[in-house]
Design a protein around this nucleic acid. Structure first.
Lengths: 325, 325
DNA sequence: ACTCTAGAAGAAATCGATTTCAAGCTCAAG
DNA sequence: CTTGAGCTTGAAATCGATTTCTTCTAGAGT
């Protein structure tokens, strides 16, 4: 309720002086004290809307993600939030459901609310960032690329696919299938490529096509594809699930068929925070989601602070946590 | 970039007229057309900050929750988001980590950003809403009460505890423990009370105290308490987990000890969206989290729209999904 | 003693949309 | 023919903080 004018009147100074006190400009000690005192008495908090209007920039950053119900993204959100709130920024979480139109709406809001920057896990590879970038708002891509020359943080996806597959090969499995997301999604494709490379090297005579299944990055996608594989003429003896939720779906189906690991080898790319399997029954390629969020937030804050070096892409290494039976 | 003044100039009208066109006031057809045309040419989007400053209210609602990594809350967030974005509102997700100080910061931001309203899953039962309510900002409590006379949506917690317990009793278990959250958290206490009532009725001679364990509402809390129970002099033959994450932790420990259900009866209050157990091995009391979000958002939008009827509390019924072995 | 500079502080412009107020205009009723 | 009710429209005030522009004062330098 209290405005800068009321504080000014109570402190016997001009509004400009009050503003200067709160923004660390040169104000004499006695006036500073008077202002702070008056502000305390009135319970004054600067009106952020007015400040944003005048400054043409707010202390809010948008975090735009495709699926708020995926723990991978919420873990990342935590990382972003921790860094941002430490720096006095608040985070608006925007859920796009992987829909380009919802994403466009949120990006438009980011502009018209003068948000300081955007961290974007793009819904598709042709998201339109023209307007945002034209206005000089920094954008950092996470998890997936955008087709623009901007900062980014991604996982080592191909290497993750390789590591998962290699681990199953070492454990003695020979017919390893790959369950991955939509072919046009970069992470899905890259992880599958990692799998393909390792398989081709170890089993050059094997026909890989029946073992590679594209689906959705969701639990039901994993269930569906796993059922298909189990019902096929030559079922696999192990699987690589290219994301956490796919992995959950697949393991559910395996459990229902009494095929729990190690009967069927299972490697999952991405953590399974709420799995009820004993953690060590499955090989997990841990993706440092929180770290990704932290890194992206730091990069974004750097850009907001005026950093103008050329765009960088940070690739985060994964950590393999092998199944111990 | 384009402002209302530039649109006005291009269309040959006053800024006031442009504003009226975008707010559905009486403007003649030809001027309306001219304005829309000019706006399209310039790619004009109204500046939300300026609008908020003038209107003293924005189209943003804050959703304040204690744990963004809990699927229960993200499912609820989805419900809120769907209703809100349908009505042209956007949702800011604020994660408090159950910390009263972080919560207070976010509530302060809600005020100084002129947010239209707040949906709050309180971090404690003495959250301070005085200022928010004094400013006439509507607040809807979800999941837990607040100590204020405001709208609320809660689960039938006691009944959930009863239903879970009753189900295990019917299945023939006789020594049923209860794992719940911090005693001072309303939902934890109420669910435990539901369990206690049913146990007292069926097994009046049983000493319930060793079977009731307060912990945190997190996976590690569930693990810890489950280990304790298994190591105790007289371990239970079944457990009621008062929330989803507690349940996950408990089931993890049971799996490691080869005590998977139905060897040990397990009933969980709250869904296990990403569990890798076959869904039917555990009794689940489904909490309609999405529905809670939808209901709360509707109530809040009603209040924002000027609804002044006395505060209501909606209690949502749960649905028991029994274990089929 | 006089000019010059640096710092402090107030007055007023500014950010962009909304809204009040007043003006101008048309058409109908008396 | 006049009064007035009901429109549309523009001019200008407004929301609250920031920032530029000015003015003023005190202290340094010559």
């Amino acid at each position: 309720m209290a405005t800068i004018y009321e504080v000014a009147k109570l402190a016997g100074v001009s509004p400009a002086t009050v503003s200067r006190v709160f923004n660390g400009m040169g104000v004499s000690e006695d006036k500073t004290a008077a202002v702070r005192d008056a502000a305390r008495q009135l319970g004054f908090t600067p009106n952020r809307t007015a400040r944003t209007l005048r400054r043409q920039a707010s202390e809010v950053i948008a975090l735009v993600i495709p699926d708020i119900e995926n723990p991978y993204f919420t873990e990342m959100a935590r990382g972003v939030e921790d860094v941002a709130s430490e720096a006095g920024y608040s985070v608006v979480l925007c859920n796009t459901d992987s829909r380009v139109d919802k994403e466009a709406t949120y990006l438009q809001i980011a502009i018209s609310e003068h948000m300081a920057g955007v961290i974007l896990a793009a819904a598709s590879d042709h998201s339109d960032l023209d307007e945002l970038l034209a206005r000089g708002r920094p954008v950092v891509a996470v998890d997936r690329g955008t087709g623009y020359d901007i900062d980014g943080v991604v996982m080592a996806n191909r290497q993750a696919g390789q590591a998962a597959t290699e681990n199953l090969v070492q454990a003695g499995y020979t017919r390893i299938a790959c369950l991955t997301g939509p072919e046009h999604v970069e992470t899905a494709y890259e992880r599958a490529q990692g799998w393909r490379g390792v398989m081709a090297r170890h089993f050059p005579e094997l026909d890989l096509d029946p073992l590679l299944r594209y689906s959705t990055f969701r639990v039901d996608g994993g269930r569906e594809v796993m059922e298909e594989l189990l019902g096929s003429a030559e079922p696999p003896d192990a699987i690589v699930a290219a994301n956490n939720l796919l992995g959950v779906g697949a393991i559910q189906v395996l459990t229902e068929h009494g095929m729990t690991p190690p009967k069927m080898g299972v490697a999952v790319i991405g953590s399974l925070p709420f799995t009820t399997l004993t953690p060590s029954a499955v090989t997990v390629v841990r993706l440092p989601a929180r770290h990704m969020g932290v890194t992206a937030a730091k990069m974004l804050l750097g850009r907001i602070g005026g950093d103008t070096q050329p765009a960088r892409t940070v690739v985060l290494r994964n950590e393999v946590q092998p199944a111990r039976i």
